[in-house]
């Protein structure tokens, strides 16, 4: 099948579209003859041209949502447009916090299924999903009528510019949703972080429970700094409260595809590997020779992180 009109859910916190948004627009451009972006916020006019550069010819804006969570109002607005006759053939959603809420709400509202965790999508509409930590690929497709809802995993597609003039911005009216939309954001907290962003850094140094205790995460941060990379973490130490959630790599955290990923004291659970096995090169340090992480490492060091990391850090310092 070919897709005529494809919509992309465009997230733009702080008035700047995410790289994830650009990945989806790029894919949509290859799939469909027209691409429209669905977005919200007070400053849509400020970034509409960015969406155009990646192929959107029209931007549908649900406007300023104030303190509401986007899930309910954006889904309701999309549903109303679709029921009103503006039917896209496919909608690409980012598998992100709000992307999932919006896709799930829309799916139930329109009684349409949603395919989740996509890592690829072919021209005939067949989607690919990685399971078991990426060791197995499932292919699936919709059997009913469009629109088809696809939730895509980050970094599944490259982000390439290609598009044209500034798109027209049109209103996507939000209907009254009554008590459904009763959740309000009282306060937003931003956790400070320096250095390159985890999902964009060319080098990621990640630490796990093998570090022993929270204070040893300094070794990870120092090594990351020396390599101009970003520190990351397994969920075990995020849950333990050693580092904020923003550091987490894996199924429920970030997907990273750096040039080099250095896993320190991480066992290599499938849920961790699914977030980092796309790295070009993987180095693992673990004291257990049987640790699963070694099965995907280009260089595996069987050793104690408390010995290997300080020496590595010293050696790097003496080079610069």
């Amino acid at each position: 099948m070919t897709f005529d009109n494809v919509w992309v859910l465009a997230e733009a916190p702080e008035a700047k579209p995410t790289s994830f948004t650009y990945e989806l627009l790029t894919k949509a451009r290859q799939m469909g003859s027209t691409v429209e972006a669905v977005t919200w916020g007070a400053d849509v006019d400020a970034y509409a041209a960015d969406l155009g550069r990646f192929g959107a010819t029209r931007v549908r804006s649900a406007g300023d949502l104030g303190d509401a969570l986007p899930g309910v109002p954006v889904a309701a607005a999309m549903a109303a447009a679709i029921q009103g006759g503006d039917r896209p053939d496919a909608i690409l959603f980012p598998q992100s916090y709000d992307g999932r809420d919006i896709a799930g709400r829309l799916s139930a509202r329109l009684d349409l299924g949603v395919l989740t965790n996509l890592v690829d999508l072919s021209d005939d509409g067949t989607s690919e999903h990685a399971i078991f930590g990426g060791s197995t690929i499932v292919r699936a497709r919709f059997t009913g009528d469009p629109p088809y809802l696809f939730l895509v995993r980050p970094k599944s597609f490259a982000a390439l510019e290609g598009g044209g003039a500034s798109p027209e911005v049109v209103a996507l009216p939000v209907p009254d949703t009554g008590p459904l939309n009763a959740a309000v954001i009282k306060q937003r907290h931003v956790e400070a972080r320096s250095g390159p962003k985890l999902d964009e850094a060319p080098v990621v140094v990640a630490g796990g429970r093998g570090l022993g205790e929270a204070s040893n995460f300094e070794l990870i941060e120092e090594l990351a700094r020396l390599l101009r990379g970003a520190p990351g973490a397994s969920r075990a130490i995020v849950d333990a409260g050693w580092v904020p959630y923003a550091y987490q790599v894996g199924q429920t955290g970030k997907t990273v595809k750096p040039t080099v990923y250095i896993a320190c004291g991480i066992s290599g659970a499938t849920q961790h590997m699914v977030g980092m096995k796309g790295a070009k090169h993987i180095i693992a340090i673990n004291k257990d020779r049987e640790a699963p992480i070694f099965s995907i490492a280009d260089l595996g060091v069987v050793g104690d992180v408390h010995r290997v990391l300080p020496r590595l850090i010293e050696a790097l310092k003496s080079r610069s």
Binding site: F142, F294, V301
Partner: peptide, 20 residues
């Protein structure tokens, strides 16, 4: 929706393992 295919993904190969 329907599953059309389930297949093994191309596996990453383990590289060199060294003892520290």
């Amino acid at each position: 929706q329907e599953v059309t295919d389930v297949a093994a993904a191309q596996e990453r190969q383990a590289g060199e393992i060294v003892q520290d």
